[in-house]
């Protein structure tokens, strides 16, 4: 939607082309997240080097790369969990200023799913989902519960609403974490290696939920090693190494004919 009056952005300078995706609706051309000349250091370690990346509204972008390549750092910059020292990040057109109030406002529109789930262990599944609805959006209890039930059904876990996170399997916990983020009706979802700490047999139930979301047109920026997911759901695959974006391509090109030697080496190891 372009209902919030954001002007259309000129996206020409960005390496990620606005893609034509395959849903029934025409693609939304508003840019959900846009990093320009982004640089970040951890002390003397140069973690992100001149990153330029645009995530158009309605697109699904998968970031992959070896560990330490900066991919998690990049998406953590996109909702202000990490600070950066050079360049800019715009969320829905608004530049991140580091101002606390602005960040809080922007974070309402940016859902995030973590590798370690990060559910609140002292709260039930329902309370995990309704906390921000009530405290941030000021919904009434019954309204918040209604929204939470809707999204718990969407991740196929409504019957667990009154359990505590520790009573659930890893896959169930991660699906609750996805529902918790969806409750806020975000304009974009960030996934930071959502399946990396799951037992193998639970990866699929989480990926299925993510593929459903992608099919519904959710804007997604996803750090993952799940190449099957990238193939099936992504518009663009971004390959990072040593803090740089090495290559950006459509999944078809990325897997069949990557242009960079470094990408080929990585894929050889991943797709063995």
């Amino acid at each position: 939607m372009n209902s919030d009056g954001q002007p259309m952005r000129q996206t020409a300078p960005w390496p990620v082309e606005i893609s034509q995706h395959h849903s029934a609706h025409p693609p939304d051309r508003t840019v959900a997240v846009e990093a320009a000349a982004l640089n970040k250091w951890f002390g003397s370690f140069h973690a992100l080097k001149d990153i330029n990346l645009a995530v158009p509204q309605g697109s699904r972008i998968v970031i992959c790369g070896p560990s330490g390549s900066g991919k998690s750092t990049l998406i953590r910059c996109a909702n202000g969990l990490e600070t950066f020292q050079g360049g800019t990040i715009r969320i829905g057109g608004a530049e991140l200023t580091g101002d606390e109030k602005q960040l809080q406002k922007i974070r309402r529109t940016v859902g995030m799913v973590f590798q370690q789930f990060n559910l609140f262990p002292h709260l039930t599944v329902m309370a995990n989902c309704t906390l921000a609805l009530r405290r941030v959006l000021g919904k009434s209890r019954s309204e918040a519960v209604g929204i939470a039930v809707h999204y718990l059904e969407r991740v196929r876990i409504p019957e667990q609403a009154h359990k505590y996170p520790a009573q659930l399997s890893g896959g169930q916990q991660q699906r609750v974490a996805i529902a918790r983020a969806l409750c806020m009706n975000p304009r974009i979802m960030l996934f930071d290696e959502p399946t990396s700490s799951l037992d193998p047999e639970m990866v699929k139930e989480v990926l299925d939920v993510m593929i459903d979301l992608a099919a519904d047109g959710m804007t997604m920026l996803c750090v993952t090693h799940e190449m099957g997911f990238a193939r099936e759901a992504a518009d663009q695959v971004v390959f990072m190494d040593q803090g740089r974006i090495v290559e950006t391509a459509s999944p078809a090109t990325f897997f069949a004919a990557p242009s960079q030697e470094r990408t080929r080496l990585f894929l050889n190891k991943m797709l063995r």
Binding site: L81, E100, R107, R108, F114, N118, R135, V136, R180, M184
Partner: peptide, 18 residues
């Protein structure tokens, strides 16, 4: 308390006090 707890809460848009 794992660091991810505060991060998840912030990512949902909660203010510092909350």
């Amino acid at each position: 308390i794992p660091k991810g707890q505060a991060e998840a809460a912030k990512a949902l848009g909660l203010n510092r006090i909350d």
